[in-house]
Nucleic acid binder design. Structure first.
Lengths: 343, 343
DNA sequence: ATATATTTTTTACGCGCGCAAACTTTTTGC
DNA sequence: GCAAAAAGTTTGCGCGCGTAAAAAATATAT
């Protein structure tokens, strides 16, 4: 590697012995130039370290190669995991992903979308805040920029939505719980930050009816994304209230369940399916840490791989086709029941 | 807000009734123009939505307003949390943070630094992989770009290092454990991904010597960042081996401890300080979920706020002063003992 | 009111590259 | 070996803005 620094594409093209537009073509698509030419450029690339100025490139391209990834709360391992998959897919497809977290705040989500718009991205993968999103802002953004919504649906917004079939999650878990013991009550937030909660609740009600059982729902107070804390505090309240008429409880999501575990521990209630336990607790999500709770958490897991891969592919299709689907597409993936020893 | 779209600064300046260079000045620093002029621009800003083209801006500025934030593993809630603080600080100071995760891979870290370099950032906040970092690459990068290292130190690299005083962490915890019960053995990885582990080990050895106890270290096999899994698997191995000669164990970090909790659960060992428990488990880090384990984890917590704030400030200082410190600065923060019921 | 300092405008250039059109060279098919 | 096709080159324009220098306008001090 020579120490000599190359300033711009002009200089680099000279080193290659080809013209600047040819080098430009190469960087846009290495296969668009003749193999011999390509070799010459790549050999020069080994000798000198040159990279096109990204700002100059993006200023002039109609469409940048940037892809925005927006999640509502990155400190939630679920989204961290999904984001990791999405990033990888984008890179492999030759795009430059930019990762953003709304940190649960509407103003921040709005700002991010504003920033993103000015980045002229080829497309955006957006998991919106949901309930606390500024509908108009998100709607306008999706009109301006090719966007795939994932995880949290907002009716009628975005060209494509990829997510999980939440009612199926709950229904599957309710069936399992009923088959193996007492029918579950349902533990959820009164005002959940994520819109999927509503569908899970609905799924619970329907599944219980199908199974011929009376549903029982406990609504946890609290706002925001500190779900474990809410699960703990409200779990204690629930356990102390004596409102639980069953020894089986299904939590609307794994983080709530993790908090509820802590509540059970504090109140001296043993969680699990073995003889010496007195309460079964199940969750929903397949949280990355759900296998390390005590006892390991029985849950329904998202198909992380499928959701992220399909989301990315859907976006890539929109980008290469250069046209958005006529009608809004939706694809929901089934969850996988993960039987462990908590329920 | 008018529907009419403004193309560029030229057009926008016309709407304001001022010249383009003046508008340019305004965007670089709103206080650099006369109050009356500022008002005129800001009134126009309300009527039309115009934002300078970030690519054109960054191409021409010697120094962009971008700040890179790089963490080794974003799916680790510790880093997710720190990243959240850092992002906020950057935005408040008027910079545009870009978040990257190395996902534990050297190649990816190298690529990120390469990308970052081409972004001509004003500065970078870097938590390197550490042991598996490509020393030369990181070193060269830090020479080219003003960089503050945080969390993981690499000797002699970067202008500033901000982190925690790891030996102090261990020492404080060892003292506490010895004071309240049996002296602890130490559970760590043989080849930890994070370099802080080495210092914690050292801290353990020294603290035990000061207290006049024989140290016992158990080295967990395994590579990478799946710490809970390693803690679980190797924890089981440890419990089965009968090598534990004490009923108190200090884990090198909270994630390992969480895995060890699961191991104890599986082997029927009750963790905690109450009468009916037979093993005390402590961790180090103050992991965001450590208060929700069963039982809640006794640990030493990083001063997240201080580390992130100080890191950001150190970088801002370097940026405004435009000169790097003559000698390498280091600032280590003490941890805070968080007594819960696991030890 | 005049001189001085500050702010703004004008003018002009450059950043590094995409892109399109016309032209030239090389490759491919027959 | 020739024509057609493909690939590469040349030329030139434009993107949207930073920035510097000089000129003009305005504010501040005397």
């Amino acid at each position: 590697m020579s120490v000599e620094k190359i300033k711009n594409m002009e200089e680099f093209a000279a080193k290659c012995g080809v013209s600047r537009p040819t080098v430009s073509k190469y960087f846009n698509d290495p296969n668009s130039v003749r193999p011999k030419t390509r070799r010459r450029i790549e050999e020069a690339l080994e000798r000198f370290d040159y990279r096109p100025n990204i700002y100059a490139v993006n200023q002039n391209r109609r469409l940048t190669k940037n892809i925005g990834i927006v999640v509502p709360y990155l400190a939630d391992p679920f989204f961290a995991e999904i984001a990791r998959y999405l990033e990888t897919h984008c890179i492999e497809a030759g795009f430059s992903p930019s990762l953003f977290s709304s940190h649960g705040k509407q103003e921040l989500e709005n700002e991010i979308l504003d920033t993103l718009r000015s980045m002229k991205p080829a497309g955006v993968l957006l998991a919106p805040l949901g309930r606390s999103s500024d509908r108009k802002v998100v709607e306008q953004f999706c009109r301006d920029v090719p966007t795939v919504l994932f995880d949290s649906n907002i009716d009628g917004i975005g060209d494509v939505f990829i997510g999980s079939d939440n009612p199926q999650f709950t229904s599957m878990m309710v069936q399992y719980l009923c088959r193996t013991g007492e029918p579950p009550c349902f533990f959820e937030m009164k005002t959940p930050p994520n819109p999927n909660a509503r569908k899970r609740r609905q799924g619970y009600l329907e599944a219980m009816e199908v199974q011929g059982h009376e549903p029982h729902i406990f609504e946890a107070q609290g706002e925001g994304w500190a779900l474990e804390e809410i699960g703990l505090r409200e779990g204690i309240r629930l356990l102390e209230s004596g409102e639980m008429q069953t020894s089986t409880i299904l939590c609307s999501n794994d983080r709530l369940a993790i908090g509820f575990f802590a509540a059970c521990y504090q109140k001296g209630r043993r969680v699990g399916i073995s003889k010496d336990c007195d309460i079964r607790v199940a969750g929903l999500d397949g949280h990355p840490f759900s296998s390390f709770t005590c006892p390991p958490l029985t849950t329904v897991s998202h198909d992380y791989e499928a959701i992220s891969e399909r989301s990315a592919e859907a976006l890539f299709d929109m980008i290469v086709d250069q046209n958005r689907p006529a009608s809004r597409q939706e694809k929901l993936f089934d969850g996988k029941l993960i039987m462990r020893t908590s329920a």
